[in-house]
Write a protein that binds this DNA or RNA. Structure first.
Lengths: 122, 122
DNA sequence: CGGTATCCATATCGATACTG
DNA sequence: CAGTATCGATATGGATACCG
């Protein structure tokens, strides 16, 4: 099943054409990115923990998304030099500042889910 | 029908795994969708007007995205039966309720742009 | 544990041309 | 004006296997 993102990395153009929205999309515009960030709002998470929280994203995708988020400065990758390996991901200050966006998305999604439920009981 | 049956619907499950965020993404999770919706916050817009506001999106993509947004009930497509053809798009109540998300995205994007600016003066 | 590399099917999207 | 059709290039993302 493919239910991944049609989204590719939006350009960083998001220029003065008036769309600051595009700028934001260039950072969180991958399907799993907002979800990942949302989970990280609650605190640091290890790679596998994230994979478990977003089962539809393969480890490969998780890595790719994580790398991009890191490159965009919204998350930190913390490597603990020990055996067995331990890596944690956490939001940077910039990432934390995305909270309003993520919370708004969650809120809206919750209402959507309620509607879907009443239409398609599962 | 290769391309006309496009854009895999991002999973509507957004289930109880805790990710209402995914549910939202299933609706606005197309690159141009948030941008389109954002512009529509200011009022109805005609097809070409939207194309002009989002130059990077080809008419083809614009149509595709618009159709999905319509199918997801966040915009209305109003056809005026006249010559020359006139079609307007407007947010539905559901679409309007996305405002907090869109505004949050714009706000965050504006700050990002300021940062980018200070790094890459144009 | 936390990845990475490769293969490969498919989806996505731009360009172009055409229509009612 | 507001699209649609078709072609083809490219990217996306799953599966699998393997490594430090």
């Amino acid at each position: 099943m493919n239910d991944s993102t049609p989204i590719k990395r939006t350009r960083r153009r998001a220029d003065k054409t008036g769309c600051a929205v595009e700028a934001t999309l260039s950072v969180i515009g991958g399907i799993w990115k907002p979800v990942i960030l949302f989970h990280l709002l609650e605190g640091k998470l290890r790679f596998n923990a994230l994979c478990r929280l977003v089962p539809a994203a393969t480890p490969r995708m998780m890595t790719l998304q994580l790398r991009e988020l890191e490159a965009d400065g919204v998350i930190n990758r913390i490597v603990y030099p020990e055996v067995p390996p331990k890596v944690e991901y956490e939001l940077t200050a910039s990432g934390v500042s995305l909270a309003p966006v993520l919370i708004a998305m969650r809120d809206w999604g919750e209402r959507l889910q309620r509607n879907d439920e009443s239409c398609q009981p599962d």
